[in-house]
Computed example of a mutant assay.
Amino acid sequence: MTSQEKTKVVLLACGSFNPITNMHLRMFELARDHLEDTGRYIVVKGIISPVGDSYKKKATENSDWITVDDWESQQLEWVETAKVVRWERLKIM
């Protein structure tokens, strides 16, 4: 299967990440490895969507594919994960 035939996937993790740990980041690596090892998928991005109002960690500054999106943390109320997924989907389309 060529890369053009593979399904593009974006990994999204929502949570407090308080504090974010290396295992949070490792979770993305394990998921990407598993999906890409099937030969059917190519992971194009990983997104961490933390809750809270003062998230300032720089844990992803050395990654070229995992980013932090603070949209969820800037909402005034709790946001359902499905809404975060829709938000992220709109941004990448």
Rank of each mutant, 00 (worst) to 15 (best):
M1S: 13
T2D: 08
T2Q: 02
T2R: 09
S3G: 14
E5F: 15
E5V: 14
K8F: 10
K8Y: 12
V9K: 12
V10H: 14
L11F: 14
L11W: 15
L11S: 09
L12S: 07
L12K: 03
A13W: 09
A13V: 14
C14W: 12
C14L: 07
C14G: 06
S16A: 09
S16W: 07
S16E: 06
S16G: 11
N18F: 08
P19R: 04
P19Y: 04
P19K: 05
T21Y: 09
N22Q: 07
N22F: 04
M23R: 13
L25H: 13
R26I: 12
F28T: 11
F28I: 09
F28S: 01
F28L: 06
E29V: 13
L30Y: 10
A31D: 09
A31I: 15
D33T: 15
D33I: 14
H34W: 13
L35W: 06
E36R: 11
D37P: 00
D37Y: 15
G39K: 04
R40S: 10
Y41L: 02
Y41H: 03
I42E: 10
I42S: 08
V43Q: 08
K45D: 05
K45S: 03
I47K: 10
I47W: 07
I48F: 11
P50A: 05
P50H: 13
G52C: 08
D53C: 08
S54V: 07
Y55G: 00
Y55K: 02
K56I: 03
K57W: 08
K57N: 06
K57Y: 10
K57Q: 08
K58I: 04
T60C: 10
T60I: 12
E61F: 12
N62K: 12
N62E: 13
N62D: 12
D64K: 14
I66H: 07
D69R: 01
D70W: 10
D70K: 10
W71Y: 07
W71P: 00
S73F: 09
S73G: 12
S73Q: 05
Q75D: 03
Q75P: 03
Q75L: 04
L76W: 06
L76P: 04
W78M: 04
W78N: 07
W78E: 11
V79Y: 04
T81N: 02
K83Q: 11
V84T: 08
V84I: 15
V84L: 01
V85R: 02
W87D: 05
W87G: 00
E88A: 02
E88Q: 12
E88M: 03
E88I: 13
K91H: 12
I92L: 04
